[in-house]
Structures are given as structure tokens and as C-alpha cells.
Design a protein around this nucleic acid. Sequence first.
RNA 1: GGGGCCAUAGCUCAGUUGGGAGAGCGCAACACUGGCAGUGUUGAGGUCGUCGGUUCGAUCCCGUCUGGCUCCA
Length: 888
Amino acid sequence: MTLTRAVWAQGIHGHGAKRELAMKTAEIREAFLSYFEQQGHTRVGSSSLVPHDDPTLLFTNAGMNQFKETFLGLETRAYLRACTSQKCVRAGGKHNDLENVGYTARHHTFFEMLGNFSFGDYFKREAINFAWTFLTEVLKLPKERLWITVHTSDDEAAAIWIDEIGIDPSCLSRLDEDNFWQMGDTGPCGPSSEIFYDHGAHVPGGPPGSADDDLDRYIEIWNLVFMQFNRDGAGELHPLPAPSVDTGMGLERIAAVLQGVHSNYEIDLFQTLIKATASALAVADLEEKSLRVIADHLRSCAFLIADGVMPSNEGRGYVLRRIIRRAVRHGNKLGATQPFFATLVPVLVAEMGAAYPDLQASESAIVKALRAEEDQFARTLDNGMAILEEALSSLEGAVLPGELVFRLYDTYGFPVDLTNDIARERNLTLDVEGYDEAMAQQRKRSQESGSFKVDYNESVTIPGETQFTGYDSTEGSGTILALLAEGEMTQSLAAGEQGVVVLNSTPFYGESGGQVGDCGLLQGDSSRADVTDTTKAQGHHFHHVQVTAGSLSVGDVLTSTVDNALRERIRLNHSATHLLHEALRRVLGNHVVQKGSLVDSERLRFDFSHGEAVSAAQIEEITHIVNEQIRGNSATTTQLMDMDSAVAAGATALFGEKYGDEVRVLSMGSQGFSVELCGGTHVDRTGDIGLLLVTGESGVAAGVRRIEAITGKAALEQSLASSQRVVDVAEVLKATPNAVVEKASVLRSEVRELEKEVARLKQKLATSSGGDLTQSAVEIGGIKVLATQIEGADVATLRETLDQCKNKLGTAVVLLAAVEGDKISLVAGVTKDATDKVRAGDAIKEFAGRLGGKGGGRPDMAQGGGTDVAALPAALAAVPDWVASQLA
RNA sequence: GGGGCCAUAGCUCAGUUGGGAGAGCGCAACACUGGCAGUGUUGAGGUCGUCGGUUCGAUCCCGUCUGGCUCCA
């Protein structure tokens, strides 16, 4: 290892000194972006790790993610050339190599992807020239170390490389599948060209396309994708009118090459993190794999939290939780006894905060969230450990059952590798097969119940865009562009059928930004369809309809009418959501970020990041702030502007909303109280909302709270109804409405006093009557037998009395009964010194049976009941004889 | 979206053929001790998460809801 490292460290020019002079990771990032800016590219910020509007993608995993719609032609940008340094996360989902991270040279959960993009502007020639110039002139990589691959069909690219760049044909491979890229089974695709770096003959491995090309000598550093075809549903390729370019170069890889190191973990950025971790955990060996795991995971966790993901038990939050816990486990392996992970955050922020201001701004939130999760995990481990110890104490044999291992993991979150460590310490092994079997069943269950929501993005392609006219009007007309039935394109929909109508223009709002879609009516000359919902996909509004008369055909012109009353109520709720959001931020703090929202005609629901329950006092304050804004009755303004201006104006972007170049900025409340990007429909003046009333506050997931509220007429009615309830309560309590609380609390303490008094009296009654009752006991074979009825006693009193009787009688058998309505309660007691002859349980079974009931208990005390009140005197009279029979 | 587990005193938790609500810590009062600290005694504190069902009887069995933990997708 040491030898190999020395060889690697000789670096690209063959002498180790260069490593010291090599560009830092941050300098490479900046060099890339400024080079492409000079080539006419717009420097675009990294998009969030949480992809908006793409449910198929767990996390942003490539530079092109934020441009997907642009490549598909569904949206246009203000520029034709762009360059980015995109933060990416790969964990969970399809390519889940979480377990490899830290143990290989180039696997990461988080990485940065440098990319330059052309949207129908330049193509292969320029893309290749840019890449070559940047690598050889800006980064000064030696040309002879670079190896090129081109698709078998792509003579054009091969010719550019060989004839124009001057690549030696022997350093160029023509590959098939490795050099073809596609977004999905259909859609844009094309050949790619990759640039490899040759670490030199002293490293094992062959050039791309050879048998041992997966070894470390040739490392892919840059992938240039030439999007020139559109693949249709039948698999046919059609040339795109405006071919595009998408490239990607892993920042950590190129840094490793430039710094002359073998593993990405040896670049300056990672070394800083690793050293900080080693120092925090007092670990001397910097080669320790666990340090790499922690350094890698620190990056993904911090950036995910900065983008609003919080540890939880599902979806993205769950992936984050797993990464955090894996990091903490590795810390524990290195001997950590205290929470350490969160303490590393400042080091990361110092290293990367300049390039990612969001990270810097979220520092305290990241520390808080990581610390909380570390504490939670520690509790989980303690708990699991206790259960494991318990199971081990009664274990027979030397194998831990798979079922137990699985249950520890599944139910209590106790990591299997930890179970394994503990088992090994005690010379035990795990039943891995049984564990795998249980896990396979769990997977099967989950998959079988997966949802089957139709994803129109996958099944059909509709060109163009629907024009939305609904901000100004709730009526309009439009031509049918397409009809869908059961997810398939169709030419017509007949009366009685359900389907989807796509128009070229519509006033119907499509579900987005948490606001539900509009309902209403579509009418043709002789046709009519009810719109039950409107959704958005591919830039189009999908009207989900039930045809009620005539039939609809592609090309028909329809009159569209939105259900105005419904729309009006939705507007109130949606506008109130914006005021609520800002009020929450002012009262609870700026860490409040929208995590989801649902706005319909009945109510509004707003989910946001916040660590603890919102107190009643805080809710009151929030309600005041919102209603103050409503009473202010200021005009709502919407402005279209580009994204940069919007951010400059202080606009907050809403989660789940897709923004094009031109965004709609909504200002509401006095003096720009709330400024947000939003495409929804809103009130003209805040006063239209009338009133906002919070109806509930609850938790959705760890770190996420939910507030539900109502507005307008509904809020007023609710408010009136609760006032009326107070009046009603006051009447029942015989108090004035203003004094109900006081009255209720007085009554409650009175009830308490009375209950205590009753308990005292019962006790007294039991003591005195116990004494009286003992008079009537008869003696059978040396045992005093007492069987009697007590008026008005309950079960607790019977028991008390029973104890008193036993105390006073010495050796005794006692049976006491009380009648309430048509129900008889029985208790039986036998003093300890007689339980070997007579058992209380037997007595109860016998006499409860005679009274049409059942009962049971211990030998010295038993309870039961019956219903045959008439038979009670005879039953009690028979007790002495029964005792005699037991003694016989 | 689909499973599993949990909810008992202010806190940490015990509590099985369904039959009388407990421990430790903390709290209060009193006593001992020169002070601090401590020790001892006594006491307060519980609709056993919610609502419903089964049962003579439910903290316990069944179901609903709420909250928390956890795994899978």
C-alpha cells in the first residue's frame, strides 16, 4: 500500500513536488466555471438536492437534472449555454452502493458534478474542443495521458477527435453501449464520448474496451453526451431538430488526477475532513476506512439538511437517517463514546461554505439536526442492547436465530452488523439464512402493496404547452389537442366515458404548489363533460372528465367554465397559506421551511420544518399576525420577473413548485409582508380572506409539524359554533360564559374532595361493618365461616370489608355479596393458614355459578358476579355446608 | 404506500392462566448531624394514551383513533 501510494504520488508529471503545487478542489471548481463563462456560458447555481416535480428521482444525481425539461423542449431558458457545479447525492434507490462507500477509491454518497450544457446551440465540435482545451490548457494535463472513447456509430465525433484535435487513433476506442446515453426508454438520447486519464503503465489495467478496463489505470474523467435523437414508443430513433449537449465531470475525480493521488479520499478537501474527524475521535491512523466513511457521509448529510431534508422514517428523510446512522456506527467503531458527528459540521462549512452559501446559512440547523439524530440513535442502540441481552440470557445453542436478528433490526432498528459484533465476542454465530428469508418477505409485502398511480410523463408525449388564462378569468374556450383514456391516447371520448382532455388554452388551474386543481364544466356544440380534477404534466393541463352528453373529439372547440364558488374558497385558503407561512417564520424562526401544503375548498394544511410542537401561545400569536394582515386589506400584487430579480426581491421559493426562467412573484400584506414565488390563484385584497382560524397542530414526521386552518365563511361559522358551545356549557354548569373556566375548575376540585371523602367513608364503613359482621360467623371444623350481604357496597368496599373480616376472625372463610340493580358482586377470602383446605377461587366458582354468573381469583382472594338476585339468600345460607364438604 | 413494536407516578421503567396499581430516582414534611453533604421516617403524586367491544370483572384480550420508535418500498 505504502509503495503504491508513493508511486501514485509521483503525480502527473512524474515528480512528487507537483502535488504540493497542484490546484485545490475549490480552485478547480472555480476554474471550470469561469472558463465556460468565458466561452459564453451562463453560470447557473446548483439546484437543490431535492428534485422538484420529479417523483421518479429520490435525489438530484446529475448535472442535467435541473435542465431535464429544457432538453425535452418543455421549457425554455433565457440562455442557450450553461455551466454548473451541481451537488449530487447517490444513495438509496436503484444504484444503492451505500455499503461500498469508504471502502473503494471513488464511491461517494455526495459528489459534485461539473457540467457544461448546450440547449440547441453548439454541438459535437465545440463540446469536444471546449473539453480538450480546458483539460490541456487550463488544467495543463499532458495530452499523451488522455484516452478517448466514441460510440461505434459516431464517425462524426471520431473524425473531430482525430483530424481536428489530433488524437492518436491508437488512443481512441469505439464502444457500443458504454457510449450511448438515454434518459429513459423513450425521449432524448444520443451517442457519448468519454475522456479517460491514463495513470501510467505501473498501474494495473487496460484501456477502455479491453478485458481489464475496470482496473485503475484508465479512469473516466469526463462524459460528453450528444443528444441528437428522440426515441419513440416503438424504439425508433428520430433526429432532433436542435441537438443538445450535456456533459459531466466528477470534481473529486479530476481533483485526484491533478493532485496525483489514487483515491478521491486523498484530495485536499477530504484530507481536511478526515484529519478533523481523526482529531475529534483521537484516531492516529489516517488510513482508517471508517474515517473516509464519516467524511463522505458528513458531506451528504449536511447538504441534504441544508436543502430541507430531515431525518425521518420514510422517503428521502429515511435515506438521510440511514446515512447518519452509518456514519455514527463507524465513529463508534473508532471508539467514539460521545456524539461527535455534529461537531464536524463547522469544518465542512469552512471548506465548502464559500461555494455553497446555503450550506453556510444552514450551519446551526445542520448541527442541531445531526445532534438530535445522534442522540436518538444512541437511545435506539441502548434499547436494542437491552433486548439482545435479554434474548442472549435465555439462548440455547451457539446460533442466534435469524428471526431474532431480523426482529431486532426491523422493529427496534438495531444494526445487524452490531448484532454480529456482539455475537462474535461471545462465540456465537448468526443464522444469516433465516434473517435473509425474513427480510425477503418484508420486501415482498412492501412491494405488493405499492401504489399504481398512472404516470402520464412515462406513457404519452404531447407536444407544445397549454396556455393558462385562469389568473384573470374563470371562463374561456380552447381547442382539444389530445384525449386520453386509461393512460392511452385516443381520438374521441363518448358519453359515459371517463378520460383526460388536453386543451390549447384553459382557465382551469392544474394541481401544483399544493393547490388542488379546479373543477367545472367543458361544453361543445352538442357535448358536455364534467371536470372532476385538473392536473399538470409536460407543460399541459390535464382535465380529468366524465363525459355526460355527446362525444368529444380531437380538434373540437370547447367552452370552459370553472366552478367559481369552489375556486373562490380555494383562493381564500391559498392566500391565507402565504400569510401563515410568513407568520410562522416570524414567530418560530427562519428555520421554518415549507415541507408541503394542501389547499382545497374546505381547508388548508401546511407542513413545515420545526423541531417541536408549536405551543398554544405561539399559535395564538401566529393567528393574530395573520388576521392583522387580513384586516390591513392591502392589495395583492403579482409580478413576472426572472429568477435572479425575484431572489433579489427577497422571494421565498415554494417546495414542489417548478420554476421556469420567468417566475411569478406574489406579494401580499402590508409593506411586502409575504413575498413568495407562486403560480397559484389568489385573492385581490387580503381582506377577502375574512378570517383565519387554526383548527389543529400535529406532527407529521420527526422535525416536521403540520398546521391546519380554515378561512372565510367556514372560519366564521366555526368560531360562532364554539362560542355557542361555551354558552351551552355555561348553562349546564350554571355559570356565566365568562366564568366557565373558573367554575369548571372549582367543580373539578370539589369532585376530587368528594371522591376522597367517599373513599374515607367507605373505608370507615368497611372497618365498622367488618366488626359487626364477625358476630354472625359460624365455626366449621375450626374455621370461622362468614357469608353475608352488604347493602350499597361496591366492589372496592367489599374487598376492604373482606380484609377487615379476615383480620378479625383469624382462621376464616368469608364470602361477601352486594346487589346493585340486577347484578350481584361477590368476593371471597380465605386466610392464608386455611388455603390448603379451602380455596377462595373454588368458593367463587361454586357460588357465582349458583347465581348465574362466573368468577375466579387466587386461593386467598377471589372475585365474581351473578345475576340471579332471588337465589342469593339461599346461596349465602349454603356456604357453611359447602365449607364442610370441602373439609371432608 | 405496507409491516412490526411501544404508550403505567414529574423522570426511567416493572407488572401473564383477566381478579386488590408497584420499584428506583425526583418532590414535600419531619427527625438525626457543628456546617456542607448525607442518613432515616412519613407523605403527596395515577380516569394504566383515546374511544368502543368481549367479560360477572380489562392496565392485561380484540378493534378504532392519537402520539412516539423502527424496518421495507
